[in-house]
Design a protein around this nucleic acid. Structure first.
Lengths: 223, 223
DNA sequence: CACACTTTGAGAACGCGTGCACAAGCTCGG
DNA sequence: CCGAGCTTGTGCACGCGTTCTCAAAGTGTG
């Protein structure tokens, strides 16, 4: 019923399972019955040894001399990742980014369904995005509970992030994907993953500079 | 002139420098002259030992018994991250996400300026987003060169990602931030960082499940 | 000037993740 | 039924990153 906790799966492996999942989905559509670790590695952009070790954490699902059964492996990974279920999701903060996420049709195609949009701006409340109406943040607790939401997406300005995170947790949310450019803490037992666009660009900038400000000629700051 | 290559800075440290930068910016606005590793750690959401070791890679910028001079440290980190320069940025793929990124006013506030928007859809070309007009992908090479762009943001559908990445690299781009849900390779000497929303949600889902499908009651898949 | 207190900087130990290398196990052709 | 050829699963060594710990180096007070 629930996923079997065979052994502890390393974090790094968990982070790669979605890559394998996607690669297998694409392979499955091409009516391929089995796949080798080598081929899967190529599709997922990692090396074959890593694929084998990662998959071995889930169990011995391969056949020596043959490879892995695509359908079966796909099923096992889905189960492990919880993709055999529907996860209703709420987005808090319906600005540029929140709106884009609300319309985004690429959330793994299946499994994650945005059911609730929440914002603090009264002018936005009631406004429809796609087929959902924006709900006031005053109703966060009620709506989150009514929709049985376990996963929340935080797309508010930095200043509001911690407060909204606290409210989400209080309403029963135990997983948060945080797009707000702010450090934000959650209690034990709640997961939080951060995605920060500015930080990503700054990291790129660092390496860009180290390559001798490579490619284009950099401009000194004028302002 | 260029950043001093004192010692090799570990990747993990580079990824945290932006956190320190942001924390110091906020601290600086409050007119605080010096800051301890303990306090900085708290603001950045890491531990103090890590802060000290990270900063020691940049040089010995602290004073024992006192802490770090906020202004000076800020300056050193900016320089290391290349934030004393302007980086013109191009966004390719002006869908939901691309549009949101184009309007996003939070790219580190300074340093990264979106100057070029590119899309393959003829119906979109010429259309204005903010104060920029969308350019055809046929003109990618020309526009990227004209604007001296070193950093590109990829927000196309998965199918187009590799092709666009290749074009960007051919046009002289050496850093790519990839939002497309696809494995995508670039030659040696080019940096690429991936941000995949579906993958982040799947990772959250994994841990959610392991906590006993915690919080809300999960729903079995009906479709 | 000496001493108590604070805080940095780095040496050392540890743990996690990666990648190599190879035995074990499966298939298939003859 | 045997042997050649694949491919998995895993033991092992190595390297990176984190954390503990403490000497070194500063400040401030009496």
């Amino acid at each position: 019923m629930t996923a079997s906790p065979r052994r502890r799966i390393p974090e790094a492996t968990v982070a790669r399972l979605p890559l394998y999942y996607r690669a297998l989905m694409e392979t499955g559509e091409r009516q391929v019955a089995t796949i080798s670790s080598e081929r899967l590695a190529e599709l997922a952009g990692v090396n074959a040894a890593k694929v084998r070790k990662d998959l071995s954490y889930l169990g011995s699902y391969g056949t020596r001399g043959v490879g892995y059964d695509v359908e079966y492996l796909l099923h096992e990974i889905s189960r492990e990742l919880g993709l055999t279920r529907d996860w209703p999701v709420a987005i808090v903060g319906i600005g540029n980014l929140g709106r884009a996420l609300a319309n985004y049709r690429g959330f793994g195609a299946r499994g994650f369904r945005v059911e609730v949009l929440i914002d603090a701006d009264p002018a936005l409340v009631g406004h429809r995005i796609g087929d959902l109406a924006v709900v006031s943040i005053d109703d966060l607790d009620r709506v989150v509970r009514e929709h049985n939401i376990a996963i929340g997406i935080l797309a508010t300005p930095a200043a509001a992030a911690q407060d909204v995170a606290d409210r989400l947790v209080a309403a029963g949310v135990t997983s948060i994907l945080n797009f707000a450019p702010a450090v934000c803490s959650v209690p034990e037992g709640v997961s939080m993953r951060k995605v920060d666009l500015a930080i990503e660009l700054q990291i790129l900038s660092f390496y860009q500079l180290r390559r001798g400000a490579g490619g284009a000629t950099p401009r000194e700051r004028t302002g």
